[in-house]
Design a protein around this nucleic acid. Structure first.
Lengths: 168, 168
DNA sequence: TCGAACTTTCAAAATATATTGAAACTCAAT
DNA sequence: ATTGAGTTTCAATATATTTTGAAAGTTCGA
């Protein structure tokens, strides 16, 4: 396989994975493109490389910046903005974990905490089942939450070293 | 908060979380409903509880069965089918991990393995960056893959015990 | 203050995804 | 072989999400 084809495959694969995980396909593709590009790209270049509109690039890149995955670079004497993706995979993973935890896991845990407190007739199977499921899911969610927190703070080799040691 | 309201909240929260994670909202809601219901429900009852059509219930429930989260129960002397959700949270988590690994992570790893092999000019920054990003992501994906495999095989208390011990 | 170079916005259009509902199908009892 | 209680299918429809592109906005040098 030649490089241009391989790049295309990578962008496609990343886009597909993204969309399966609730991340806009185009956002994942722009990210993929920037990841495999050594230097920062302009809006124009991204439009060209992925055949998408100016407006779309603008919004997508803004999202990537909000996720902490891309930075805007300004060059002395130029009006154009350049976009550059952090290439450190561990940073990327952590950043994604951090954002999704904040946006999705935290709110759910908050609701579950409320629901665990709901009182009811301890003889009523409907109540018992509700209460047990909510309590169990809450525990699971909190374990995931703690694990993510550790991951977010951790150094890569330490983290995987510890995790992978679990099954020797 | 009273039980009926709490149930509603739970179904909504689960549906929202599902849709943020690439799982059809209705599927997540039906799952939520079954999780907090002590006994198995019929198509009719699910339609009623969630105000959705018969066709939708049928397809959604089939998906849940394919995911290994719900089972069909038949009762002697009755033509109707009853649907029952496994209430063991750890089983659910494992089952979801297993399915998503198979459907999404495995194919990506296969592509990454191909892309890592792509040869190019070692002096070319475009090639160097491509190769490094692909290689790094491949390593990360393989670590996740191994961790999921461990989780899928593991017993709950052992797994979380080991993971949470990591940060004492 | 003008205008060229560039960015941002957002209503409208395109696309993708989910849902409906009625017809077709299955199956067992009569 | 017909009926009726149920399930399944899927074209049509509805809904949600993404994308476009042109107009409005910004910034800066002349």
């Amino acid at each position: 396989m030649e490089l241009p084809e391989a790049k295309q495959k990578f962008i496609e694969a990343w886009g597909k994975l993204g969309s399966e995980w609730g991340i806009n396909r185009t956002m994942a593709q722009v990210h993929a493109l920037l990841l495999i590009t050594p230097d920062a790209l302009t809006t124009e270049e991204i439009m060209e490389a992925l055949s998408i509109s100016r407006g779309n690039v603008n919004m997508t890149v803004r999202d990537l910046i909000n996720w902490g995955l891309v930075e805007k670079q300004l060059r002395a004497g130029e009006r154009k903005e350049y976009f550059y993706a952090d290439k450190d995979t561990w940073n990327i993973a952590r950043q994604v974990a951090k954002e999704r935890r904040k946006r999705e896991l935290d709110p759910v845990i908050k609701i579950l905490d409320e629901l665990v407190k709901v009182e009811g007739d301890k003889k009523d199977p409907a109540y018992k089942t509700f209460h047990k499921s909510v309590t169990d899911i809450n525990k699971l969610a909190k374990n995931v939450d703690k694990t993510l927190e550790t991951m977010i703070k951790a150094d890569e080799s330490w983290f995987w070293g510890s995790i992978l040691k679990i099954f020797k």
